[in-house]
Nucleic acid binder design. Structure first.
Length: 302
DNA sequence: CACTCGTGGAC
DNA sequence: TGTCCAAGAGT
């Protein structure tokens, strides 16, 4: 029998980091609107999509605008997808806006306008992967799921594995570890999920972790080993200047800031390299983020 | 699996 | 100042 089963049967387990981290969360959790008692599953879903690879501070104002304008999925679904792209503003990765619009359409058509509570049905929605499906099921519906994001992966890497950073890509061992720590009671499991994420976001950060404020410092394996530096393969540093991504961003910003369709010259002026510019524009069209009109102009999609 | 896909703040 | 990185998903 695997050792973790024995651990699970002991309740409460003194060595488990769950209780100290739950207690820490009770005192230090940020007061975020998608965690409020009146937050809807739709509000939670929108927040999770927006928060993908994007800091909380930048999401907050856009999330408020979206929820005020589209308090329910049906409202967004009734709009042209270009309105979602425009309202996305400068959050980055605008394909998320497109997929969120597609998800709203699917929720309206397939689920009667209500965000599904079922994990598999969430996973089937556009733009929702393993993490987001588990997060929505857990945070919005109080279910018991292993919610494994970049914060939790880092917390577990340090606390349990004794490494400064988790592996580059998620491993099965990480999933098993996360599942082994999950409290049995669904409501407690859901609170644990958000608490572990919050600890990673506020204390067990990637750079300059605030170990003095950590509720489980005394049992942190990374700490016990003397905080050895990361020794794995070099982690890819993302370059940006001069890339297609930067070019796409410039082109789409022109369309976002315009009130209607724009002519080709308005796009040409924002990027000097014509070959790269055309490639990026074609890609935006292929992605459905830009609509080429019959008259030669360009617009956000309808 | 490795790669693409935005943006801006912190150090 | 350049580097790092922030609640990932899709291909």
């Amino acid at each position: 029998m695997p050792q973790w089963r024995l651990v699970m049967q002991t309740s409460p387990n003194p060595a488990s980091p769950v209780q100290p981290i739950l207690a820490w969360y009770d005192r230090h959790a940020r007061d975020l609107p998608w965690r409020a008692p009146d937050a809807t599953p739709w509000g939670v879903l929108v927040s999770e999509i927006m928060l993908q690879q994007t800091p909380v501070a930048r999401v907050l104002p856009v999330w408020r605008e979206w929820l005020a304008r589209w308090p329910e999925p049906a409202g967004l679904a009734a709009e042209p997808s270009g309105e979602a792209v425009r309202a996305w503003g400068r959050l980055g990765y605008p394909r998320r806006a497109l997929r969120l619009h597609q998800a709203a359409v699917a929720i309206t058509q397939r689920h009667g306008g209500a965000v599904p509570a079922d994990h598999a049905e969430l996973l089937a929605l556009p733009g929702i992967g393993a993490y987001t499906a588990a997060a929505v099921a857990s945070f919005a519906f109080g279910q018991r799921h292993a919610v494994l994001d970049t914060n939790v992966r880092r917390v577990l890497a340090r606390l349990v594995s004794g490494a400064e950073y988790p592996p580059k890509s998620q491993t099965r061992a990480e999933v098993r570890l996360a599942e082994s720590l999950l409290p049995d009671d669904p409501a407690t499991a859901a609170r644990w999920a958000v608490a572990a994420m919050e600890l990673g976001a506020l204390v067990c950060t990637a750079r300059s972790p605030r170990c003095a404020d950590c509720p489980v410092l005394d049992r942190c394996e990374w700490q016990l080993r003397g905080r050895p530096a990361y020794d794995g393969p070099p982690r890819k540093g993302q370059t940006y200047a001069g890339t297609d991504r930067q070019c796409r961003g410039r082109l789409l910003a022109v369309l976002r800031d315009a009130h209607g369709p724009v002519g080709k010259p308005a796009l040409d002026v924002v990027w000097a390299d014509a070959v790269q510019r055309e490639r990026a524009l074609d890609a935006l069209v292929a992605d459905g983020l830009v609509d080429p009109l019959d008259d030669g102009r360009y617009a956000l999609p309808s």
